[in-house]
Design a protein around this nucleic acid. Structure first.
Lengths: 124, 124
DNA sequence: TAAAGATGTTAGGTTTCCTAACATGGTTTT
DNA sequence: AAAACCATGTTAGGAAACCTAACATCTTTA
C-alpha cells in the first residue's frame, strides 16, 4: 500500500508542531534559519513539517535545556549526517570560538555530573 | 514516553487530509455532517483530523466507489461500532427504503463478482 | 415531474501563518 | 564598562487556508 505514513511526509502545520514540541513559532523558524530543519512549503508558502522534523526539534530542545548553544548543536547534527566532512567545518570564526567555549563548558558539566552519578565524592 | 503518535491524535489539517484521501473539502464536511467522522476543533474552530479519521475517510471513499450510498455506509459503520444496537436502526422511512434498495443491489453485485472470481460460468 | 442525495461553487468573514523589523535580557568580547 | 552577539519575544501588515451558509447542478428515485 502507498497509504503508509512515512516519517518524512510533510503532514503537520506550524500550530501542531508547536504543541507537540512546546516550542514557540519564533524558535522553530529560528532553527530553520540555522538549517537544522528544512520543512516543506505549500504552494501558499506555509511550512509543513514531518514527524522527522518533530523528532529533530525535540532533540534540539533537549540540547538547549542541557545548556548547549546553536553552534554546538549545529555541529552535533553535522557530525550525524556526515561524520567525515564534520572534521573540517566551514564555520565562521565567531561560531568556532563559540563552539570551543561551549566545548569547555560541556567538559566541566560532564565532570560535575559524572561525579554525582558515580558518587566519587569519597575521593575528595 | 508520551511522545508517541496515537491514531486518534488530531494532527492533520483539512488540506493535507484532502491530499491523503483525494476527497474534496465539501465531501469531507458532508461526511462529518453525517457523523461518520467527528474531527477535533482548534480554538479558532478549524477542523483537526486524526490518522483514524483518514482511515475512515478512505473506507468511505472505497464504499462510494463501489456504488454504495450514505445510508448504507452509515449502517456499516454503525454496525461496526455497536453490532447489537445496529439491529434496530432508528432511521427515517426514506433512509430505510434506500438501504433496502442498496442491499438488493449489493446482493446482485456479490453474485456477479463471485461468479467472476470463482468462474462459475461453466454452470450456465 | 417533483423530491432527495451528493457534490460543486460562491460569498463574506475569521484564523493561522508569513516575513521583516525592532525590542530585550543575558553573555562575550573588546 | 561599553559594544557586540545570541536567542527569543513582540508587533505590524499582508496573504493563505479555513469556516459557515446558501444556492446551483446533476442523478436517482418516487
Amino acid at each position: 500500500m502507498s497509504r503508509e505514513i512515512r516519517r518524512t511526509m510533510p503532514l503537520l502545520s506550524m500550530s501542531i508542531v508547536m504543541q507537540l514540541t512546546e516550542l514557540s513559532a519564533r524558535q522553530i523558524r529560528y532553527y530553520e534559519e540555522h538549517h537544522l530543519i528544512e520543512p516543506h512549503r505549500t504552494e501558499g508558502n506555509r511550512r509543513m513539517f514531518s514527524l522527522n522534523d518533530v523528532d529533530i526539534l525535540l532533540e534540539i530542545k533537549d540540547y538547549l535545556e542541557q545548556g548547549m548553544n546553536m553552534a554546538k548543536i549545529k555541529k552535533i547534527f553535522a557530525k550525524k549526517s556526515d561524520p567525515v566532512a564534520a572534521e573540517e567545518p566551514d564555520l565562521t570564526d565567531t561560531e568556532l570560538r563559540r563552539i570551543m567555549r561551549e566545548e569547555m563548558r560541556q567538559a566541566q558539566r560532564m565532570q560535575k555530573s559524572s561525579i554525582r552519578r558515580g558518587d566519587l565524592s569519597r575521593f575528595y
